[in-house]
């Protein structure tokens, strides 16, 4: 089966205005949260999106879901049999109807469930918003999805407080999947969970993908989690992609110095392996005032005059392996 694109993002920009002081203060600048990002997610695949906090990962996800308005660029959803759809053109009712195809699972299962609604009502809410069917039909659908998400159907009348973190995250997943979406954004969906439960939720997400062919955008800061679930991985730094490649290539043959630094900074469980992180001095720059040239040059150990002056091109260095670095070949 050849890969079919589902989500196509071209030159996506999301800029947030920074206002001056006072009630009527004018716009004094822009935070370039996402600045010229292009990528494709194929049907049934998982794109892992990693980067430090403030790199714009969440903003990319929200822009695709139309939870945020993009400043510029193209967002295309390739529908099955019905041709491509420009997501940025959707408005009002048509946008609301289309949302059944794109859903989101949040990070904190304690904060994202209404404590005053029963689990059944939480999972049914998307269907009720879509006027999906009669109460009986909705009930049946909720039971079916809850079962798929390994929730005890007997517990649907309980309130969220009665559930553990892992079970709550299963409720969140059921809520996201109930409308039968094709595309699901998992924004740090396992970061708040304990390792034992985390493994269970990751397995569940992968099983559901195998069964229903979901396409995921998996946003995480934990690289080892991304390594397990992703088909491809994109690394983001201050609003831009620095590297994008199939998972194996990112983890075994990273080309961008930032990717290398990120990988080396993850402490490995093997105590016989010496932990020697590739030193990155300083912190992530302010996206309202990004550095000139390559945005990573302020922290990069290989930076030279060219990096400071010229923004590196986004280029294919190897089959399906894209990188934005002047020195990717030299550094190997």
């Amino acid at each position: 089966m050849t890969a079919q694109p589902l989500i196509e993002v071209q030159n996506l920009k999301v800029h947030f205005p920074v206002r001056g002081k006072g009630l009527f203060g004018g716009v004094s600048g822009y935070v370039r949260a996402v600045d010229d990002v292009s990528f494709v997610i194929n049907r049934g695949e998982t794109l892992g999106l990693v980067g430090e906090s403030g790199s714009g990962k969440t903003t990319v996800g929200r822009a695709i879901l139309r939870a945020l308005d993009a400043t510029d660029g193209q967002l295309t959803f390739h529908r099955n049999g019905a041709g491509p759809l420009d997501l940025r053109m959707l408005k009002g009712d048509s946008l609301r109807k289309f949302r059944r195809n794109m859903q989101l699972v949040f990070q904190d299962p304690y904060a994202s469930l209404n404590p005053r609604m029963t689990v059944r009502d939480i999972i049914a809410e998307p269907l009720e918003c879509l006027k999906w069917g009669t109460r009986q039909e909705i009930d049946d659908r909720v039971r079916e999805v809850a079962g798929k998400c390994k929730l005890n159907v007997e517990h649907l009348r309980r309130f969220p407080h009665a559930f553990s973190g892992g079970q709550r995250q299963r409720i969140c997943i059921a809520r996201a999947l109930v409308s039968g979406p094709q595309f699901v954004v998992c924004d740090e969906s396992v970061s708040a969970l304990d390792v034992s439960t985390q493994a269970e939720i990751l397995n569940l997400l992968m099983d559901l993908q195998d069964e229903f062919g979901f396409t995921y955008l998996f946003i995480a800061h934990d690289l080892s989690v991304v390594a397990q679930v992703s088909t491809r991985v994109a690394v983001m730094y201050v609003g831009r992609f620095v590297e994008w490649a199939p998972t194996r290539k990112i983890f075994f043959n990273p080309r961008h110095p930032y990717t290398k630094a990120l990988l080396s900074a993850v402490p490995v469980v093997d105590p016989s392996r010496e932990f020697n992180p590739f030193k990155l001095s300083g912190e992530i720059p302010n996206p309202a005032d990004p550095p000139s040239g390559c945005r990573f040059h302020t922290r990069c150990p290989h930076a030279d005059g060219r990096c400071k002056a010229e923004m590196p091109d986004w280029r294919e260095i190897d089959g399906e392996h894209f990188v934005a670095c002047h020195h990717a070949e030299r550094l190997g």
Binding site: S196, T197, Q198, L202, N203, M206, S224, A227
Partner: peptide, 21 residues
């Protein structure tokens, strides 16, 4: 220890500790 996802073995299947605390 088995439940921890690793970066050097891309197995796609993890081994959770069964059940909840």
């Amino acid at each position: 220890l088995q439940a921890i996802p690793r970066m050097d073995v891309l197995s796609r299947r993890l081994t959770p500790v069964p059940g909840d605390i």
